[in-house]
């Protein structure tokens, strides 16, 4: 009797619907927190929780490649960079300015507009419910699951979409160079370019005349 790990007892207990609902709920709450929470640092953490839940939902939808990518790109790079920015400037930012009177209304108006737009696009496109990722009873649906597997994504990236793929790599190279140029300290005098860290050329104030504490 070949032992097969394939068939989990998925269907006996609707675990994935439960997972979906809690992911969605946590995502909504953390999304709200990002906007409303007092300290910017907590907003950063809430945003990361939101990204992780998005990755969870991608995984549930049967596209693990997107989930892993989401975790890697958003949580690993963008959120960390954002937290870095928050940490480095936290001291300098004065306490949160109290929002003026009509700001919440502006926010409400914009969100309603956005919701309308989303509703239009979602309702107009055809979705076949393909069942959850691992359920064997994969009903025939508009989008079959296998098309989203990694190999297909890889193949599509390099054959039909080869040109945009190359374009993106050029753009990334450009941003990399710009970042390095931006982050350089003041003009590095050629003399001390050999020091391990690029020390500023400003003459170091003699240590023996310290500022009076």
């Amino acid at each position: 009797m070949p032992f097969s790990m394939d068939i989990y007892a998925w269907d006996s207990f609707p675990i994935d619907t439960l997972l979906f609902w809690c992911f969605a709920a946590v995502m909504l709450i953390s999304g709200l927190c990002v906007v409303t929470v007092k300290r910017v640092f907590h907003a950063g953490i809430a945003m990361i929780v939101c990204f992780v839940c998005a990755a969870g939902i991608y995984a549930l939808l049967g596209c693990p490649f997107m989930a892993a990518l989401q975790l890697l790109v958003y949580v690993g790079a963008i959120a960390t960079m954002l937290l870095f920015a928050v940490m480095l400037t936290d001291k300098m930012m004065e306490p949160r300015p109290n929002t003026t009177f009509f700001q919440p209304f502006m926010g409400l108006f914009a969100s309603v507009l956005l919701f309308g737009l989303l509703w239009l696009t979602v309702s107009s496109s055809k979705f076949g419910f393909a069942g959850w990722a691992n359920s064997t009873a994969a009903s025939s649906s508009a989008i079959d699951i296998t098309s989203l597997s990694t190999t297909n994504i890889g193949l599509r990236l390099l054959t039909p979409y080869a040109v945009p793929f190359e374009l993106i790599s050029v753009i990334i190279l450009a941003t990399l160079i710009a970042a390095i140029a931006l982050a350089r300290k003041e003009d590095r005098s050629p003399a001390d370019s050999g020091t391990p860290a690029d020390a500023p050329a400003s003459p170091a104030e003699p240590a023996s005349t310290p500022a009076k504490e």
């Binding site: 300098m92 140029a181 931006l182 003009d187």
Partner: peptide, 14 residues
């Protein structure tokens, strides 16, 4: 002399 002028608003505080 470096080709990129130093970034004035990139003030680092010791």
């Amino acid at each position: 002399m470096s080709t990129f002028p130093p970034n004035p608003d990139l003030v680092t505080e010791e």
